[in-house]
Simulated scan of single mutants.
Amino acid sequence: MNIVFLSPGATPHYHKFCVELKKLGATVLGLGDEVYDQLHPDLKSSLTEFYRVNDLHHYGDLVRAMGYLTFKHGKIDRLDSLAEYWLETEAKLRTDFHIEGIKTDSIESIKRKSHMKRVFQKAGLEVARGEVLRSVEDVQKFVKLVGYPVIAKPDVGVGALGTFKIRDSKELETMFNTKPANVDYIFEEFIESRICTFDGLVDVAGQIVYCNSMIYSQGIMETVNDDLDVYYYTARDIPLALQTVGERIVRAFDLKARFFHFEFFKLSDDHYVPLEVNMRPPGGYTVDMFNYAADVDLYKAWAEIMLTGKTKLEYDRKYHAVYISRKSRRAYEHSKDQIMQKYGAHILNHVSVPGVFSSALGNEGYLYRADSTQKVLEAAEYIRQKY
């Protein structure tokens, strides 16, 4: 089986997906604008070939690359980057080269937040009131219905970059004066609640083979805009109401052979309002967290689904896995040595975060697991304690 992995070196630990594909016998073909010699050694050893283009944004170059790889290796069976940024590019390439997976006829519903709302509503789910608005006057009319504050975010966008919390008419004017030109923004009513997720992996039949949920110390928007450090941790038990609405969304979007990451407002233990969907693994080091929480290997499980359409996972979420971030410009009370002395037996990794991810994930992070929420919160407090 020939599998093209788009931009294989962009996310530091995603080389593990390519490694597992090769172990299972796939011909793994890299297509990216990275310098080959700078790729992770395990990634290089897993690739049968790496085709470098100068810029992944030049679609014509990607078409020529795919034509070459098809001529040399035969029909391409799968293509993915597991990154939200390239979803539309992937869909175009799958359409043009007749590759199984999400194509251009269905990309809008998973790319545009305004279209996601339509799918939620069609599935009978409650949503936050919101719409794409292009003028101050239209937003003011919307505010008359929902009141301040309102949230403004790019209709197409990744993470919390470019997101505004608007508290009054002055901030609204500022937002329109500073937002990127020619970018559609969706404006939504502000809902005061915790954010949680429903995440997992589905096989080629759309069956959920793994799922979990994450709880955040605060929203990613607040983390980025207010320059905060964040922690988030996996659940051991998923509330029935959350799992039920999550499964409805999987069916509503007709997901096949994909990771998913759904975000919700948690209004109570039995009341969840969908915020948005992301058809990729959760960001940061979350795949590793899921593996640590249940002693599974989702890199291998995804690779098995790519090659055979299915995988068999028997798992128990025995632990909470938590990611605890620190930012270099903060003065923390406890040093790395003190942290390792106190928690080292249960710290699974200490990572340095690439700059492009640091606004959300900090400059460094600790991956820790424990069997109780109390232990998670105590560790998060200790590691993030400031002078």
Rank of each mutant, 00 (worst) to 15 (best):
I220A: 11
R118I: 04
F357P: 07
A241Q: 14
P354G: 01
H334V: 08
K310M: 13
E88L: 13
V156Y: 10
A303R: 07
Y231C: 13
Q140C: 01
Y272R: 03
V322N: 02
S358E: 06
L267A: 09
K386W: 05
S325Y: 03
P154A: 00
Y36P: 04
I191S: 01
K75Y: 11
K386F: 10
V204R: 13
W86F: 06
G130K: 07
V19Y: 15
E378R: 05
F190C: 14
N291A: 09
K144Q: 14
L201P: 02
L348W: 11
D297L: 01
D155Q: 04
S325T: 15
K312E: 15
Q140Y: 13
R64C: 03
E20F: 05
F97E: 03
D371S: 07
S7C: 15
A160N: 14
P12M: 03
F290E: 01
K318T: 04
E222W: 06
H98R: 12
S193G: 08
D42Q: 07
D288H: 02
Y233Q: 04
Y14F: 15
L21C: 10
L255N: 04
G344I: 00
T234G: 03
L133T: 07
T197Q: 05
V376W: 03
A205I: 00
S81Y: 14
I99F: 04
A360E: 11
P180Q: 15
S268I: 07
S169M: 11
I220Q: 06
R326D: 00
K92S: 12
M221V: 10
A128N: 11
I166D: 00
G25N: 10
G130R: 02
A205F: 10
H320V: 00
E100N: 07
R251K: 13
A301T: 15
L242P: 01
Y368F: 15
K117D: 05
R52Y: 07
